[in-house]
Design a protein around this nucleic acid. Structure first.
Lengths: 355, 355
DNA sequence: GTGAAAGCGCTAACAG
DNA sequence: CTGTTAGCGCTTTCAC
């Protein structure tokens, strides 16, 4: 019935050679009008689908993909992304995809700029990037566009950049999930805080998204209660003032819950909360990092929201590879589910092949 | 450095022909011990990885996989599995995998038996199955084994069957997660119920697993409180008695939470709870079915635990295909994370490509 | 403009 | 036991 139809078959039907068929398929010109339309007609009629396997084998091409990532030694979170890239490498090298992962300093814009230049010079066929530094990333993206190099963003999006694909989460909704988890089964009025604890240089556009979601959640609860919602930007390089500010917050008697949006911050808050006692204050943080897991298991952290940076990177590379090799259209916005991690399901995540 | 190394290269190094190398790679015998070990050594040293693209193209084979699934019209849950199988089909047909999905009646063992026979006669190269009917499935599995047909189980395992792979969840832990979600932030004594609501014919071994986890969770809470844990097996075909039993349960003044382990059951309990008012009784159920989503969104259901049957099916087929085509060793027990679904993260799951 | 032919890396049949 | 060789379907080069 629908046995596979090959270029050869088309050629036969059109009474031309495979070369000619190939030329019309790829629109390479040098074909007489007559042959062209004859082949075209048959192509249509038969619904010819090229065999992608044969295609990649035949056109013995290789593709260079550059991944610009923060130095994984500076943050366990990014270490997981690197893992994901490694996994993707494993899968795609056999198809002729060459992956090069390059690290920039998470706290040094200059290092990113330099790296970006290096990448530009190497003329890759595709770029994967975590756009930590907004302006610098945007600049790099523009040169990518000029050079017609497709790029994929992970972790946080830069919408106006128009990437081939964004792979990450809905950060606004993520803030809402955080709020929900703090508010579960709470019937009284109370204070809820969202804390962004980071280094000076950190670019925080994406933290704002989370904050917006967090606040909106509480605004929308019209159940007769009033909620006092705080947000704090804290700098973790000034440890003494940080501790002071946190202590003040914890002394707030109406405090019900805290959402910490940055991984480093979670550690600091957890430690303090452990020392002072939870006193019914709930704590929600992000990601399955070793320290977070520790505090989840001992009850200081109530929930984690998993961003799955490993798989984000993996999917990002796959999107690029599929685009390059198979001309598959990439998913413009590949959003991951907002995974809620508790003490009882955490191991099912850690043991799962997918994570 | 790590440029691709081909069979040809290996052959050259070992001073034999590609034919010989191919023979040792595939263990087809007919190779002198000496050559064998020489080639083997080089294979190891170079870390040779076959080019799968070339492999599938070269060995112009096709494989038939049969999937035995419950009729998706009888239960939305299984409809999702069928979706997953379709997705897998999309991905694997180009590699020469022919997928045939066959439905049996969820409430009729005979239909399964008949279907199994048909499948046997068609001599497939692999089988995917949801072993709903324990004994019947086991019988079919045995004939598969005799015929050396690899089979993958999804949804629930039959351990002694020794499948190529089981794709599903840790049901014991799933019960624990259910208990945790009911018990969140509850500080008082109380009654917690686990309900199995199903048809006569339904095989319930896997429900027991959930129940064990549920009970163990409460036993292990040594916080000075006492919990009254109930379990009920209810038959949903006798609607009047079912309602009566449920009403009795809901009238229990100390009742704090209910875990419903079956999808059909969730609907009945939700409806009743809606009518009588929640009164602080928590409800947790399974899966992202339309009805469940409705009751999640209107606040009757507090959480859902997602079993992700779609992806289970997808992964199951992939395991089989990889095994057949690439001789990749399948994961004996491919356990999915226990996904907690709340009002705030449900859409991120529904919109996600992975679900 | 067009066709023939040599690959891509691997498989498998077939001489020796 | 081993080497040679003709494919798999598509790409690409090179004569004519």
């Amino acid at each position: 019935m629908d046995k596979k139809i090959r270029i050869k078959d088309i050629a036969q039907m059109a009474q031309v050679s495979v070369g000619t068929v190939d030329r019309v398929i790829h629109n390479r010109g040098e074909v007489a009008k007559e042959s062209y339309s004859k082949v075209m007609a048959i192509l249509e009629k038969t619904g010819y689908k090229p065999n992608l396997i044969a295609k990649t084998l035949g056109s013995n091409k290789t593709y260079k993909i550059a991944a610009l990532m923060p130095n994984p030694e500076q943050d366990e979170y990014w270490n997981q992304s690197i893992e994901g890239i490694k996994q993707a490498k494993e899968e795609w090298t056999q198809y002729g995809v060459q992956l090069q992962t390059l690290y920039f300093d998470l706290y040094d814009k200059e290092s990113f700029i330099k790296l970006a230049e290096t990448v530009c010079e190497s003329n890759p066929d595709g770029v994967l990037m975590a756009p930590i530094f907004y302006n610098e990333a945007l600049h790099f993206i523009n040169t990518c566009k000029e050079k017609n190099i497709p790029f994929v963003l992970i972790n946080n999006n830069i919408e106006q950049a128009g990437p081939l694909s964004f792979v990450g989460q809905d950060l606004y909704q993520s803030g809402r999930v955080g709020a929900e988890l703090l508010h579960l089964n709470e019937k009284e009025n109370g204070t809820y805080a969202i804390l962004h604890i980071y280094d000076d240089i950190h670019n925080s556009t994406h933290l704002n998204e989370k904050e917006k979601g967090f606040k909106d959640y509480f605004v929308e609860q019209n159940n007769g209660h009033t909620y006092n919602v705080l947000s704090r930007d804290l700098n973790y390089t000034h440890e003494s003032t940080l501790e002071k500010e946190l202590s003040d917050l914890l002394n707030e008697s109406t405090l019900k819950g805290i959402l910490v949006t940055t991984s480093k911050g979670a550690y600091t808050v957890s430690k303090l909360l452990e020392k002072k006692g939870k006193n019914g204050v709930r704590l929600v943080a992000y990601d399955l990092l070793a320290e977070n897991l520790h505090y989840l298991n001992n009850g200081i952290i109530d929930f984690l929201i998993n961003q799955n940076s490993k798989r984000q990177a993996f999917v990002g590379i796959s999107q690029l590879s599929n685009h390059l090799l198979f001309k598959k259209q990439a998913t413009a916005s590949y959003l991951f589910p907002l995974e809620i991690i508790s003490r009882q399901n955490v191991n099912s995540y850690l043991n799962s092949k997918q994570h």
